[in-house]
Design a binder for these strands. Structure first.
Lengths: 343, 343
DNA sequence: CTGAAAGCGCTTACAG
DNA sequence: CTGAAAGCGCTTACAG
């Protein structure tokens, strides 16, 4: 069919023939390595003919010859989670700036992402990986990923990582509540088993103890990262005999549940109950009153992780580690407790 | 350095040599075209050796030989918009099922996305495109994209498209409000200039006229897709002399603004004011009371668009058009108007 | 059933 | 400054 012919693309050979030069000259010009190798005159002529013919170097041929691709993969648990979407956005920005493309690998519940990653690596289709919040099984050897991967929010002895200062963020949140005078602070935690949440939990306890308070079992409730479950969990917190005056939530999504449970119980936020979240995505400003929360700069995180990855390509060295600070954004969901008498 | 050597990957030649067969035999086996060409015995041996050596076909070499890649690009205005993130998720699901990867092309304000797309196409790095809510400039010739692209939410004479039944969705929303007895229905519209929003606007007007009502200028306010702007716009709607009893919002994000403006004005939703949104993402269930909204199945949309694209690759034909129906999800933000007297 | 060979479109030593 | 040539690792006619 004529489509096939019409589509047949113009190659460096076509340009060379028409310009009356060698194919190497064309290649040199487009690789930007022509200086001192091809006369200015010839370069101009090559460019002119290329333009006329609509020539564009075939990137696939280039990749084969060079032995590496300009594609990195972002491996994430779920794009439809706004946090990961924001990370992806940052990754794409950084990648594009250096002429790399980002492919998405959405892992969802598939815990054997290592297989997918290794396949992509050994099939030479992917130059590097940003592994976001996915933890490798202990028994998988990831040394092949040295200089080819950056882990986000997870550490690994052999691989560079971009971490969040979860401890600092949690501490800021807890000290804000303690500073307001709260002494009965509950923890609405998630059931998700990840380092980042363990750190929140540990810091929550530490800060309570540091303030001379006890860690009460009935001041902790667990829920999946989903507002319905969070609401049910928050309800149990508000129903204990001596209810908390503040709730620290592992994630803004859980804060939604806290708001709904408070409303059910006839409690006003922040007068009767203070709520602090974690994330600061769209949710935090959607909630009324606006949520006080620990902001996680997801886009910056994705951007920086990608920059580290691309830098690791250049000069292999020791795994790079960087920690991104987190800030507490104080809004309208926190205030001093109404009756500090119950202390 | 030893890394370079250690990394040198095993090729079909290595497998062939070790198995004592020709390179073509190895290639045939891995291309799944060995039946009747290579004896079962030899096939087993090849597979065994390949396994032992850790051989994986080099996809880049394969792409060069075959003349096409297994990569499609999703071109979207902004991944951090949850709607587009959901589309991306669906696209990735469909693509992966057929062994394609999806790269993200985040266009943001860059209106000249056609350049990026054409570059990627002519550079042979991308096999096809899902163009989501991006409208081509009139003067750009996209015939090269025939059979290589599917447009989502936009039509084009030469290119397949996956559309949403915006008219049906808007109609359902308006009839719901009219059915509840509302006669003073405002439109909180977005300033975003896209087909999809024009359709909402036109249908809004049509439904009012169809119900024997007038389209009032002061019942329309425009805002960017951002809750702060929406709040200011909604405020003006609630401050007109004879205020509306219901607001139809172009998007759930605008509904956030409507909720905030209602709260400011001391109006209870749905008793004093009914609000309908459009999208049904996370926001709709975050808002209190839960938002009645037109659900847009974004993930299904991305999945289906990608399926159409991959099918178009197989058998070039007339542009394919498909329309996805939209459903109204009735929740708690709509009720009969309190005083139907003001009619 | 099996193998030798051409060729996809580049990049890059190498020889002039 | 310029060109002929090898080779990246595949796929696929083609000859045996």
């Amino acid at each position: 069919m004529e489509l096939g012919k019409g589509n047949r693309s113009v190659t460096s050979v076509d340009v060379a023939r028409k310009a009356g030069v060698s194919q190497s000259a064309v290649s040199l010009v487009f690789a930007g390595k022509a200086e001192g190798r091809v006369s200015a005159q010839t370069q101009r002529e090559i460019l002119r003919v290329a333009q006329e013919l609509g020539y564009r170097p075939n990137t696939v041929a280039r990749m084969l010859r060079l032995g590496h691709t300009n594609i990195i993969a972002l491996v994430i648990p779920d794009v439809s989670n706004p946090f990961f979407a924001a990370v992806l956005k940052g990754a794409e920005q950084a990648a594009r700036q250096q002429n790399y493309a980002v492919v998405l690998v959405n892992i969802e519940d598939d815990l054997s992402w290592q297989g997918v990653v290794m396949d992509a690596l050994t099939a030479h289709s992917i130059g590097g990986f940003v592994l976001c919040s996915v933890r490798p099984s202990e028994d998988v050897d990831l040394t092949l990923l040295r200089y080819r991967a950056v882990m986000v929010d997870v550490t690994h002895p052999e691989i560079s990582s971009m971490l969040l200062d979860i401890v600092g963020g949690t501490r800021a949140a807890m000290r804000h509540l303690l500073g307001l005078g709260h002494r009965k602070i509950a923890h609405l935690a998630t059931t998700v088993d990840a380092e980042t949440f363990h750190q929140r939990r540990d810091t929550y306890k530490q800060e309570l103890l540091g303030a001379g308070l006890l860690v009460r079992d009935d001041y902790t409730a667990y829920a999946a990262l989903e507002s319905g479950a969070a609401q049910r969990a928050a309800r149990t917190l508000l129903q204990v005999a001596d209810p908390p005056t503040a709730i620290f939530c592992d994630d803004d999504i859980l804060a939604i549940g806290a708001y709904k449970a408070a409303q059910e119980a006839g409690l006003k936020i922040p007068d009767d109950l203070s709520v602090v979240g974690f994330d600061d995505g769209l949710i935090a400003q959607t909630l009324t009153p606006a949520l006080t929360t620990v902001a996680v700069p997801a886009t910056a995180l994705g951007r920086r992780a990608t920059e580290i990855l691309l830098a690791d390509f250049q000069i292999p060295h020791e795994p790079h580690r960087e920690v991104m600070p987190l800030e507490l954004r104080v809004r309208s969901s926190t205030a001093a407790p109404r009756n500090s008498t119950a202390m």
